[in-house]
Amino acid sequence: MIILDLAIETNNLKKYFGVIHAVDGIDLQIPKGSLFGVLGPNGAGKTTTIKMLSTILPPTSGDASVLGFDIKKDVLEIKKRIGVCPQELVLYPRLNARENIHLIAQMHGMSKKDYKERTDDLLGKMNLLDRSKELVKNYSGGMKRRINVLMAVIHEPELLFFDEPTAGLDPQSRRVVWDFIRDFQEKDSTIILTTHSMEEADDLSDELIIIDHGKIITQGTPDELKGKLGEGDILEFKVKEIEQRNEIIERATKLDFVQWGKSVGKHRIVLNALDGLRRVSEIMDVIKVKMEDISVRKNTLEDVFIDLTGRRLRD
C-alpha cells in the first residue's frame, strides 16, 4: 500500500546479528519534507536502521516502507529516490572531487550537462571549487567530509540519509555542512539525520527520536523533549564520595526547587533545579559534600538522555 504523505513508515523493525539485537523493534512514521533526527550513543542502532531503510541490509523481521515502497520488494525503486551520506569517508582516493561526485550522478543516470552544472554549483556552496581537480587523497579530512556529503545529494534525491555527517569536523566546517543541510531541506526533501551530537540534533531536527540499545526511548521535537525535563537549570558537578552518590541525590531532591537528580558515570551528579544558578549554595548546604567542577546551564538533549538512561550520549 502506498502512503503518500509519509516518507518512512516502519513496523516493529528488527535487525539481529546473532545474539546482538542491533535494532530491536522500531516503529516510526516520518512525514515527507521533515528533517528528522535520530540521536543516540555509538552502537545504539542508528547506522543499522539507516542501512535497512536504504536497502543495504535486510531486516531480520518487521516491515518498512520508504517513499511508499517496500524495503524488501522494491529495492531498485527506493535506490532511485534516495541519497546516502555514510558515516565513514567513502571516496575514491585516486579520483578528483568532480570525478567522485560525477560517478554517483552517472550511476543514477543523470545527463552529463545536468551533473556538470550541478557539481559546479555544489562545489561552490561547499567552498571547494578551486581544488576540485585535485585527487581526493590529497585533501584534508574536512574537505573529504564535504565531498562525502556532496556525493549523496548530486542527484537531488527525494529522501536523504545523513549518517553522522559532521563527525570529526572543525566547528567552522560543521557550520558549512549544517547550513547546506538546512538549505537542502528547504527544497522539500526529507532528511534523516543520525547523530550522537545533541547540539546537531537540537539545531537541525524538526522532530527526533532518541534510541538506545536498538529501541526508541523517546520521540518529539527538541523543545518538547527538553520541556519534559521541567523548567529548571541543570547543575552538574563532580563529587569525590562515590559511594554516597545516591544519598547525595536523595538529600538534594528533598529540596522543593530540585526537580530530579541523576548519577552519571562514577563521579558526576546532575540535578535539575529551578533557578539553579542562585541556589547553588543552598544545595551545597544540604548535600554536605564538596563539589568540584560545578557547571550550571540550560537543559539540553543530552540531559534528556541522562534522565532516561542515567548515561551520557558519549559513554
Binding site: R81, Q106, M107, H108, G109, M110, E156, E158, D188
Partner: peptide, 27 residues
C-alpha cells in the same frame, strides 16, 4: 525538484570501467 532518472546498464558499466581504469593508472 526531485527527478527520477532511469539509468542504463551499459552506461553504468562504462562509467564504472573508466573509474576503475583511472584509479589503476594513477597509482
Amino acid at each position: 525538484m526531485e527527478q527520477i532518472f532511469e539509468p542504463k546498464f551499459t552506461n553504468q558499466l562504462w562509467y564504472l570501467t573508466v573509474k576503475n581504469f583511472k584509479s589503476m593508472i594513477r597509482e
